[in-house]
Each structure stands twice: as structure tokens, then as C-alpha cells.
Design a protein around this nucleic acid. Sequence first.
RNA 1: GGUGAGGUGCCUGAGAGGCCGAAAGGAGCAGUUUGCUAAACUGUCGUACGUGGAAACAUGUACCGAGGGUUCGAAUCCCUCCCUCACCGCCA
Length: 425
Amino acid sequence: MLTIHTIRENKDLVIQRLAVKNFDGEELIDQILTIDGDRRTTQTELDNLLASQNSIAKQIGELFKSGKQAEANDLKNKSTALKDESKVLSDKLGDLEKQMNELMVRIPNLPSTQVPAGRTPDDNEVVYQSVATLPELSANALPHWELTTKYDLIDFELGVKLTGAGFPVYKGKGAKLQRALINFFLDKATAEGYGEVQPPILVNEDSGFGTGQLPDKEGQMYHVGIDNLYLIPTAEVPVTNIFRDVIVKSEELPIKLTAYTPCFRREAGSYGKDVRGLNRLHQFDKVEIVQVAHPDHSYSILESMRNYVASLLHELELPFRTLKLCGGDMSFASALTYDMEVYSAAQKRWLEVSSVSNFESFQSNRLKLRYREGNNKPALAHTLNGSALALPRIVAALLENNQTENGINIPKALVPYTGFNTIEN
RNA sequence: GGUGAGGUGCCUGAGAGGCCGAAAGGAGCAGUUUGCUAAACUGUCGUACGUGGAAACAUGUACCGAGGGUUCGAAUCCCUCCCUCACCGCCA
């Protein structure tokens, strides 16, 4: 969330930036500022009351010591009266803080000045495309959900039996391909300087709040009620929460971490051809990269992360494009997002495989993730993350784009990891 | 799951109703000095919010796991919850 300082000191700018996300913040921000003013005067009053109570309590102590019981008792009564008064004020202050917080969390992050205006995915700006002409397959080319059956790579039906739709069972070379991709992505990330971590895939409520899944989006996560834990929708949650309530030294920045985890998404309400095969799953594998950065460097780091993800797609020889998301298509928390989409030649459509974002201090403010420069006061760090990469749609594109009459070819870069260079019957 | 112990600042660790935002030591930072793979000394050394200030800073309040309570006054007493550790049980 935004800080109250940002809102208080740059009200007009905030409203104007929010408009790029098609968010009309004027009324909300006025409400917040009104409550904030009220909150501050209430705190001043309360602090003064408490200060006099403190000083009375101190006097009483001294009076007792010197045996002046009567005077002490007078002061006691006075203090009791003040206590009632301050109780009222502190309840009021608590209410105001709560109200303010409830409004604050409804304000999205401000989009960076680079963000193009727009409402729908059609307004996203294509900033890069790896091939001039899109690959065309022969007329009898198959979509991946048929290829996985033909070559016995994935059993969707079996997954339904074991768990339900959206929980595929990978088999044989299909399973091996998963493992190969995970290792490939992790090796590449570590070579790029990301420290590998293997976090828990269940998290507590505090972590859900830290990265913003809670309180609003709990319907999108699987919840283990008996222990009140959530299955992670992305490694971003546990990895970013490593830094919750942490003050790092500025010389430790940037901090770069990578993690492979399974991810779990309920995707409530999704249906139709978009969810066919591997296009959308309830459980899938992903390697995530996360950086904690100094505010001065977060945008150059975003570019480097974007380039890094692009390099993976080049190595996998997949046609892809990079989009700079328009205001209307960006997530609530992001200040600037690049989406990477691979072209799925059999489906003849672009599939999102990565989303790389700079959250600036929006997440840090929730997390209380700060850095300290020398002996200065702590300041909010910037956080960034990106998929590098999510497996299912990569697999879909690999299978579809590389199909031949004799089988499916594995890109050279992956062969050391798979141990085979074609998938055939 | 059972039993016991315990949660204090960056760390170790004292404090057991007022003199405690909190001893002492360590780490860190700044400086002085001796000098050479370091030592000694001095100072500094939590966070948040508020008020004043352009700022440096000053000042008020809150925070000793969390939330309640008792009291004029709570790190300290009481209640609830959470967590950690140890041992036993179970177990990949």
C-alpha cells in the first residue's frame, strides 16, 4: 500500500497517476485525508493526556515516599478521572486508524510514468517480438492436449481421479521434461547471481497479508483450515516474506533470490477453452526470481530481469514477445509490469509465461521491508519479482511448436537436462 | 499427542510494581591514540506515530511475543492466545 506521507504530500499527483490505472481515487483520498487530520489531532490530545497522567503518577510515587498520603490520594482521584478521558480518546484513535487502514488498502499502487494508458489487454504495448513472422505448422498439427496423450506424457483424466480437474499427472518423458525444465531454470538463475532457496509451500496468515493475497483474495488460495495455513499461489509469497519486518543495510542491496515451488491456484470462476490442457491449472510448477532493491536502481534492475527472462526463452528457441502492460491491465500492486508471452503455434495464440514487475515500495510498506543507508533513518526498499519461468505453458509451446511427423524435438539447451533429444512413440 | 522450561533491543543477557526505553558485555558506527595483519580509550548506537522546525534537531506518546485486565503507576502481578526450546511418544 501507499504511505500516508505520499498521499498527504502529493495528493493531486496521486489522483492523476491512479487515473492511468482507470482508478478514480478522488473521493477515497479525500476521505483518507479527512480521517488522517482527525487522527493526528486526536493523537496529540491523547498524548498530552497521557503525558500528564505519567507525570502525576511520578508525583504520587514521590509523595508516598515522603509520607504525604493525603496529597497522594488527591492526585490519585485526579489521575483516575484523566484515565477515563484518555480511554475515550484512545478508542477513538484506534477506530480512526482502523478506518484509515481499511481505506488505504483499497488504493492500488501508482503506475510508473512509463506505463501506457489503456483499459484492456489490447492496449498493452508490444515492446519486443523475437521473430518477424510467426511460425506456421502443417495443417494436421495437434494442440498440446492431444500431443500429451499421443506421446503418453500427461494423463489429465488420472489427475481428475486422484484430485480433480487442473491437477495433471505427468508421466515418463513428460515427467522428465518437468524435472529438466526446473533444473534448467534454477541453474540459469543461480548463474545469474540469484541465491537459491527452497521455501515452505504453505504459509501463515501474516505472510498472506505481507504480499497482499489477504485479506481480499483468499478465495484464490487453497486454505488448510485445521491449521489455518494457505497453499502458496506463487513462490513470491514465502520468498518475499523472508524480508517482512526486516531492515537491511543498503550495501547488501540488491538481494537476489530464486526458488522453485509448486504453485496452487483455485482460479475460481474460470472456465472455457482458455483452461484446456495446460493453459490453466490448479497446481503447476514455477521458478520465481525476486529482488530487493535500492529505490534508485529498481528500474534498471527491472530491465535486467526482463532481459534475463527473454534470454531463457531465446535459449528454449520459443517465439515470444514482451508486452509493457497498460494501466488497465496491470495488477493492483505493480508500478510497471512486463509480460512475456510465447506463441503457441497449434493454438495460434500467445500464452503468458512470465510477468516481471517492479512494485516499488508498495509491497515493502506492507511488509515493513526497509533498508538503512549509513546511520540514516530506515527507508522503504523496492521489491521486484518475475516468473523465470512457469512450466505448463512453456511445455505446451515446446510440444506444439516442435512437433514433427516423427516426434517432438527438444531444444538443444534442454537436452543435457532431459537426456533425450526427441519424444517419439 | 504428553510433560516441563521459556519468549526483553542487532546478539548474549540482567531487571521481579515507581529511580526502566530498559544494566552489563559483544557486534556495528564515529573519533582519539599506539602503531601494523591488530589493540586501547572516548563517544554513539531501537522503531513507529504525533508536535515544533526548511533542515539539523528538540520534544511528547507508544512498544520488553500478541491481546485483555488489576493499579495513581506494569517488562515486572492476573487472564487468554501465539510461538520457541527440551524430554517422552509417533514418524519420512
